[in-house]
Design a protein around this nucleic acid. Structure first.
Lengths: 364, 364
DNA sequence: TTGTACTATGAATCCGTCC
DNA sequence: CGGACGGATTCATAGTACA
């Protein structure tokens, strides 16, 4: 995982590399990237030109890069770039891939076949999708993203509490309701058309990057396009690497990135989990005299245990840590002794966790 | 497409056939079924027992029928039943398959490989999914359904206007918001437990069958379970064929189906679902760039707080949601942050609730 | 009868660190 | 690397009990 200075120096951080993404990724040092976000070609096989009821032409995806002769051709392309992507990921790295029903099932199966481990599939619900003009299908109102770890044993970054905060205090769900990229955010050519047919909204990338990276992480996008991944990464204080074949897209992306400024550092600090707080052994409360050996603790049912000099508890029949004795009394598989036990001061029960908080605040 | 009387007579209409679905389907006449709805095993790969934070145990899906040795084993099973299913479909027949990220990508790829032609993928958004108790992933709040024609040239039934009517007059989208099957609808064993671990809600099948069959059509379900497909088909005046291996499930399904007749009309009326209220998390204003991380908000007293990337606020001493920080600053038990905080534009204070209104109007 | 408080439960790939 | 152990972790509904 640790790279030599020479190797790290090779990473083209915050640059766009022109070329085929498989070749470029193969030239990068292995295990050097924290996260990959990929929006690969969709393999759309559209019959002819599509018209709206008013006969205006729908500007569909018909670019060369989106054409594949067969599922087999698409599969071998997919496996090749996924294998190249996997090599450059750090051991705890992860990947996001976005697609529609035309390609996402093949991508998902290939991810699993290549050894990635799916963590969640996330549905992007579009608030304002393009309607189905012919009335022959349902409105295609969503796209699917797959979030997967490098392998089954990887422990990718997951900022659970930050996502929970983004969702106003309730756990983030696997369906995200966000508008498509339009208006001022949508990049235009000099002629006024779309600069890229499938430009993703920044809000989508914001949620992806806040949820699965930390400031300073390296985020690579092998199908950079007009650089939404790089733009949001830069705003959020992450480093990016963009790979793109098309010089026209690169030109637009470079201009876009030059105008982005990063948010201030303090704003990038995000709600953290309790697990990250320093561990306080219960025995320390005894050592520091906040609780005395021989003193009695009470559980919610009114059962009591005595504190011993080594920071363990004892009832008539049980001995062990605050967690072990609590679990045994409740017949539960586990117990958080900190919130389970109380001591008595002035006739009032006080949860022992308040003493831990006191120690933690003194530590900081 | 037209079958002889002898062959049609062989169809076990409105019956449950006990046996392996591949064998049973292979014994049916070809091109005899209008629609197949399949809820195959998901191949969940669960670890040890899971407990809720209150230490109650989660009743997991650990049945034998959901166990496969490998992806390869699952794939060959999938291809075999899909091939058998395709043979018995009429030329304009279609199939629905439901799954989760554990299996749906493999199913979707297999569908395409076997010659089916995907028409839509539909996301079932659960209003009340089981949360992620350990805080390690996002809530798995949806399942995916694939709707596919027998082949590229098939013209399956699609009742566009009926679905539009079900959706309050606007075109049906590819995401359906429906509650999981619980309460009285959930079938129980005599001991009071779940009769089947994965019973689907009738509302889901109602929408599927209204949208893609006509009265009198033949609907086959190769993984019949406790017979939701048959129950809804019967209510809607479609013929069904159920295939199921487990005698216990068959027994429950038969009893269920025998009672459908008398409740037919009432049951039809309860299948409409309510739509979820649009809740707008404050974090979405940040994700969507309406407010920037690092930007300052002001309360009525002129006190300020800075916005962070995860949609929380921070003052010199406080961190939390717009509501929490507002309440703390006022020493109040609660606070509506939406009307409490303002941002500054062109020297004018603007309440952040105006941004929420803007988002709500876009959503409706 | 009505309102409130409490309990039960759902297709789940659900811990991290130190010894 | 296996085992021990500290201790963190949940949302929407439906049903039930009781005032």
């Amino acid at each position: 995982m640790t790279k030599s200075g020479a190797e790290v120096a090779k990473l083209p951080l915050n640059e766009i590399v022109r070329g085929d993404c498989i070749d470029v990724m193969n030239a990068l040092p292995e295990a050097s990237v924290d996260l990959i976000f990929a929006d690969p070609p969709y393999n759309l096989q559209l019959g002819g030109t599509l018209h709206r009821p008013d006969n205006s032409r729908v500007d569909a995806v018909d670019d060369d890069w989106d054409q594949f002769a067969s599922f087999e051709a698409y599969d071998s392309f997919t496996k090749a770039w996924l294998a190249a992507a996997r090599r450059i990921l750090k051991p705890n790295g992860a990947i996001w891939v976005i697609g529609s029903y035309h390609n996402i099932f093949r991508v998902g199966a290939a991810l699993q076949d290549e050894g990635f481990w799916i963590l969640n599939d996330v549905v992007w619900r579009k608030t304002n999708p393009m309607p189905n003009f012919k009335g022959k299908r349902m409105t295609n109102a969503h796209e699917t993203m797959i979030w997967a770890g490098r392998d089954r044993s990887a422990k990718p970054t997951f900022n659970y509490d930050a996502l929970k905060a983004l969702n106003e205090g309730t756990q983030m769900r696997s369906d995200w309701t966000l508008p498509i990229c339009s208006g001022h955010e949508r990049l235009k050519t000099e002629e006024g058309g779309k600069a890229h047919p499938t430009q993703k909204p920044q809000s989508l990338l914001h949620r992806v990057l806040v949820g699965s990276t930390n400031p300073g992480d390296v985020v690579l996008d092998p199908f950079f396009g007009t650089g939404t991944t790089g733009a949001v990464a830069k705003m959020l204080g992450r480093d990016f690497i963009g790979i793109e074949r098309d010089e026209g897209y690169i030109k637009v992306a470079k201009k876009r990135l030059s105008m982005i400024r990063s948010y201030e550092k303090a704003a990038l600090e995000v709600t953290t989990s309790k697990r990250a707080e320093p561990r306080v052994p219960f025995g320390q409360l005894v050592e520091r005299g906040l609780l005395r050996p021989g003193e009695t603790l009470v559980n919610p049912k009114g059962e009591v245990a005595k504190i011993r000099a080594d920071g363990t508890l004892a009832t008539k029949t049980l001995k062990g840590s605050i967690h072990q004795v609590g679990a045994a009394l409740d017949g539960a598989p586990s117990c958080n002794g900190w919130t389970y036990w109380s001591f008595v001061r002035d006739g009032q029960r006080v949860v022992i966790d308040s003493l831990r908080q006191q120690i933690r605040s003194e530590m900081s």
